[in-house]
Amino acid sequence: MAKSRSHEGTGPSQRQLRVGELIRRRLSEVLSRGEVHDPELNALSITVGEVRTSPDLKTATAYVLPLGGEHRDEALAVLNRNRSEIRRSVTKGLALKYAPDIRFVLDETFDRMDETRRMLSQANVRRDLD
């Protein structure tokens, strides 16, 4: 009989977090070393902020951002165009049962941090905080 998990739905498991971090590191290496044979991709400097995996580890969502945050749509298009070669290069260096399908999403964490800083610097908010 299967064990019931009372903490289900509370977030990713330790295994998901561990595999996500392994994929993030390997993906960063692949992109920084120019292991994909696309001059347009190799000309970009892309930061991989986080990789989240599905519970079955068959899908990995990579949160990426080009250096300086410029040309986001173009960078995403280039990554998606080379998705299968990136997948092969990333999983070649990892001991996983399945090669996860990698999806690329723009990392908007920095935008949200900037917006939060802007809001906290407003005079009426600072007055309320004091």
Rank of each mutant, 00 (worst) to 15 (best):
S13T: 15
L57T: 03
T47S: 14
G68I: 07
E50C: 03
E70D: 09
S89T: 06
L17M: 12
A77F: 07
H7S: 12
D56A: 00
E35Y: 13
R87L: 08
L41A: 10
G11A: 03
D73I: 12
R88F: 09
R33E: 13
D38Y: 14
A77S: 12
L57K: 03
T59N: 00
T53N: 00
S89I: 05
R33Q: 14
G34K: 10
G9H: 09
G11Q: 07
E8C: 02
A62H: 04
L22Q: 15
D73H: 12
V48P: 04
A77K: 13
R33T: 12
R88V: 10
V19A: 01
I46K: 11
G49Y: 12
V30F: 13
L67S: 07
A75V: 11
R25L: 03
K58S: 02
L65R: 15
A75E: 09
S28T: 14
V36W: 10
S54W: 00
L76D: 06
Q14E: 09
A60I: 07
G68W: 04
R83S: 14
R26N: 04
G93A: 15
S89A: 15
G69V: 03
L94T: 11
G20N: 08
L41H: 13
H71A: 14
R5W: 09
Q14M: 02
V78D: 06
R52Y: 01
L41M: 13
D73Y: 10
S54K: 00
G93K: 14
T59C: 00
V36T: 08
N80C: 04
L22C: 03
S6Y: 11
R24P: 10
S84V: 11
V64F: 09
V64W: 08
Q16G: 04
E21Y: 08
H7A: 07
E35C: 09
E85P: 00
R24V: 08
P66L: 05
T91A: 12
T91P: 01
G11F: 07
L79H: 11
G11R: 06
D73T: 12
A60E: 04
L94D: 04
E21D: 15
T10W: 13
D38R: 10
R15P: 04
I86K: 03
E50H: 13
R18M: 07
Y63A: 10
E40L: 13
R81M: 09
H7Q: 11
L67R: 02
K92G: 07
I46Y: 11
N80W: 06
R18N: 07
L41S: 08
A62S: 05
N82T: 14
V51K: 02
H71S: 14
E85T: 11
G49W: 08
A43L: 10
E29P: 01
R26C: 04
E85M: 12
R26H: 05
I86W: 06
Q14V: 10
P55L: 01
L41I: 13
V51R: 02
H71G: 07
L79C: 09
Q14N: 04
E8Q: 15
E35W: 15
V19W: 00
V51E: 05
I23G: 02
A77R: 13
I23E: 03
